[in-house]
């Protein structure tokens, strides 16, 4: 009974870990015992792990990681700062919605990574081009989620604040912002994925360092375990960001804790 309670308490991390480990074990087992594939194309987790260890201990990957993270963080921050106010404005002012919506919808739907070569021509191979690419990819989830959040804001609460003397500014800060917060977290989750795509594509095209560059270099030289190790680093990065986001949500939105469906 006690063990069972302990299990339910930590159900989430336990099930999560089991599924991840299970996946790697399956992968390892399939490639060693079931199908034998040319190591030229695919490789086992054990070899990837060895390569990853080498990369981290050798220190080569740290520099790449720092370069990519910097571009990511700049682009992502800019997306937050520009995206949220734009989306809120669009949601609150009908005229802004009618004016901006067609552009943003078209841009959100189109494969903006295709702009990478152009951006590199304009901004060069350095940091700026990558930052702009990350920004372009990450900003739309923020815009559209903020927009949807505003649209779903409870009119009654707006009226309540207004009736107690709240002005436009109070409505933004005391009603709209708290009520779009869960939408922002959902938007950020999508934006993280898109932003990482931006980094990689940017570095594939033209770069001399960064994780994306590392991946393409290892790929070009057929060093598959190293290449997978670099991809693994990205995955870990994405997971860390997403988990951080969950923690942040709990801090910013304490009223949500315990409200979540089990």
């Amino acid at each position: 009974m006690a063990l069972r309670d302990r299990y339910y308490e930590h159900q989430r991390p336990i099930l999560g870990t089991v599924s991840v480990i299970g996946f790697f074990l399956l992968w390892e087992w399939l490639l060693t015992s079931v199908v034998t594939v040319d190591p030229f194309f695919l490789t086992q987790p054990s070899k990837v792990a060895a390569a990853a260890k080498e990369l981290f201990l050798g220190g080569a990957i740290w520099q790449d990681l720092a370069v990519s993270s910097k571009a990511f963080l700049w682009g992502f921050s800019a997306a937050v700062i520009v995206g949220i106010p734009t989306g809120v404005f669009m949601g609150w002012r009908r005229r802004a919605e009618y004016t901006l919506d067609p552009f943003f919808t078209a841009l959100y739907a189109s494969p903006l990574v295709a702009l990478a070569p152009l951006l590199i021509i304009i901004f060069g191979v350095g940091l700026t081009g990558k930052v702009v690419l990350v920004f372009l990819l990450a900003v739309f989830p923020f815009i559209f989620n903020a927009f949807a959040g505003v649209k779903s804001t409870d009119r009654l609460l707006v009226n309540v604040v207004r009736s107690f003397g709240g002005k436009e500014k109070d409505i933004y800060w005391k009603v709209i912002l708290p009520s779009i917060l869960p939408y922002m977290v959902a938007g950020a989750r999508i934006a993280i994925g898109r932003g990482i795509v931006g980094i990689i594509v940017g570095e594939f095209y033209a770069a001399s360092e960064g994780i994306g560059f590392a991946i393409s270099r290892f790929g070009d030289t057929y060093r598959l375990p190293e290449m997978f190790a670099a991809i693994l680093v990205l995955m870990i990065l994405a997971v860390v960001f997403t988990e951080g986001l969950r923690k942040l949500e709990n801090v910013l939105a304490p009223w949500k804790i315990g409200q979540e469906a089990r």
Binding site: L156, L157, N159, V160, S163, F164, K174, P178, A253, W255
Partner: peptide
């Protein structure tokens, strides 16, 4: 003037 609202209208985050 102040109103007691029929549907309460409490701010969920407060």
């Amino acid at each position: 003037r102040a109103m007691v609202f029929q549907e309460f209208g409490l701010l969920p985050w407060r």
